[in-house]
């Protein structure tokens, strides 16, 4: 019996157990950091495709970073992170299936955009960037983000 109790105690203290118990404010901070990173790469891409800066050789890097960040989107809205210093709307947790479908559409929009970027045509990329922004960030914010304070 003692052995079983010790085993259960160890199990509770493992890093896996701790990872599942993220404090809501930490989850919100992490989410905001991911969103800021997405915004940063997005801004960089828009500057490049509109020929405001001459770093077209870095375009793929930014798109790949976005793809990695987008892969996390369905994990950064855990239960309990719906209040506090967040502009995320309750609708995310009220209907998670609909929210996950919106995220999936965003990821698909990014894949479509990445395919255009890969062709290397800047003017085509510029109009694709507008479409991508509208179909990913824009459509998600419309439904799931409150206005900033």
């Amino acid at each position: 019996m003692k052995k079983i109790s010790l085993f259960l105690l160890c199990l509770l203290l493992t890093p896996v157990g701790m990872a599942q118990d993220i404090e809501p404010e930490d989850a919100i901070k992490y989410r905001k950091a991911i969103m800021s990173a997405i915004k940063g790469h997005n801004n960089a891409i828009r500057s490049i495709v509109s020929s405001k800066v001459p770093f077209s050789n870095r375009l793929n890097d930014h798109v790949m970073s976005l793809q990695q960040l987008y892969a996390e989107l369905d994990q950064i809205f855990p239960e309990g992170s719906d209040f506090g210093k967040t502009n995320a709307k309750e609708a995310i947790w009220d209907d998670p299936d609909k929210f996950n479908a919106t995220i999936k559409k965003s990821q698909e929009a990014l894949d479509t955009f990445a395919a255009v970027i890969a062709k290397g045509n800047l003017s085509e990329s510029a109009s694709a960037a507008k479409k991508f922004g509208k179909e990913s960030c824009g459509s998600c914010h419309k439904l799931y983000k409150k206005k900033d304070n």
Partner: peptide, 8 residues
């Protein structure tokens, strides 16, 4: 700042 407007 590169963010997108939200909500209404």
């Amino acid at each position: 700042d590169g963010d997108y407007v939200s909500d209404h």
